[in-house]
Amino acid sequence: MNEKLRSIINKTLLPVAALLIVLGVWYVVCESGSVPQFLLPSPQAVWQAFLKDRQLLMKHARVTLTETFIGLFFGIIIGFLSAVVMDRFSIVRKMLYPLIIITQTIPTVAIAPLLVLWLGYKMLPKIVLIVLIVFFPIAIGLLEGFQSVDADTVNLMRSMGAKRLQIFRIVKMPSALGHFFSGLKISVSYAVVGAVLAEWLGGTEGLGCYMTRVRKAYAYDKMFAVIILISVISLLMIWLTDMLQKSLMPWEKVNKKRRLPT
């Protein structure tokens, strides 16, 4: 019980307290009038802007989320397939791995306008950008997971007469799940940001477009509202990934609690 209480304090109470302090300082600064309202809107102004525009925000959020999920879906599939191929054929790995690393050094901000130019103002360039962002952490994470499998374990499975596909399904895939989820957590948060970024550069729908419009109108209260909304969406996505991981990897709970020497 005592331990549980401590865990609640550490994991919930302390971060919430920090958040409240930040909000409090923000509130006091705005109320005291030391910063003009049009530069930094107070927390209530942001909240009211959110309430006033909530239908519009939800409409745009739906578009952004659709792009994010479609992009995530294809990004994960492509990432998974390339990790499997790179794991199976070392020549492919040696050829592709450096190439993949190089593509990651190109800033997303630089590719986004090109994609819009090539693929138009609809959803496609946004989805392609998300796929590009998502693909990398998934592919690299999974590949590392596949390669980290203990050679003796694979030998034992082989001695039991296991086929390559069985070894993949029974040993490699579950071993790589942890790596996969580490990659996925990075991917989901970047995916939302990537969608917004692509929307800045062109299009008529999505939170990014909304953001561009309110910025041009100098409506900073709405600007803050949409920024916070994007953060909340990202956090929710990470939380969902976490939940998914916990339900797919029930052994992690036990293994974390008790690591006995082998």
Binding site: D152, R158, M160, G161, V171, P174, M249, N255, T262
Partner: peptide, 29 residues
């Protein structure tokens, strides 16, 4: 392979399978 059973110093039980699923592995294979 697959005719004679083999056991090493390391138990090599798969950490993500329950004990019974680990033990049943040769049958499942």
């Amino acid at each position: 392979t697959g005719k004679i059973s083999y056991m090493l110093q390391k138990d090599m039980l798969l950490p993500f399978r329950t004990v019974v699923d680990n033990v049943a592995l040769p049958l499942i294979l």
